[in-house]
Design a protein around this nucleic acid. Sequence first.
DNA 1: ATGGTTGTTCAACAA
Length: 255
Amino acid sequence: MKIASWNVNSLKVRLPQLAQWLADARPDVVALQETKLEDARFPVDELAAAGYRAVYSGQKTYNGVAILARGEPQDVVTDIPGLDDPQRRILAATIGDLRVVDLYVVNGKAVGDPKYAYKLDWLAKVREFLAREHERHPNLVVLGDFNIAPDDRDVYDPVAWGGEVLCSPPEREALKRITDLGLHDSFRLFEPDGGHYSWWDYRQGAFRRNMGLRIDLILLGDALKPAARAAAIDREPRRWERPSDHAPATLDLDI
DNA sequence: ATGGTTGTTCAACAA
């Protein structure tokens, strides 16, 4: 099966691109971030026409996550213990034998900003949730927009980005505390080299110049690691008209 | 250095 994560930066704007990509790439499970839609406005019928069931946790203007799958997602969780948060950033569901957790990690704005403190606190609380999920569901996939470049290979200009938000040591340490739960960055099971990014700023022709960061990740629990067959970032939809600033990350799993 | 671009909403914020 094929799993994917895509920050669509407004599902209202990006629905045509998403439908095209679903038809082209034919993923079995897709985690979306930044849908920016209230649940009542989620395009259930359009996605059903594309062959996908959906669960979603959205809000107006900001944030919003969704999981698309061929079958009905079960045991849906939108809120976790210890995190009383109106921001819709977490969605967990069971799809067949797979437990899927979709995350839209806090951006953090800048090191030292109150939003940066919120990001680190959010990550610590989500880590505790993921530890419990992993105990209950060995076949765990955690994917989404992590808003953290795991290491300097994931950054086009590590000197310029050194210590900045998305690359700072406390953020990378918070991510490591999550991967240390036995959740493996699937892209790095296949690709040791740098220069592969999933987000490029809309400004200054950053995509054309491949000035990007790899911040969209698919983490695989220990039990699923042997089933990984291929990982990629599909830059094709980033070349289309009116693109998201993110490209989909994909993973082929032999299950 | 605080630029520039897109989305939501309509001046300002978030990314």
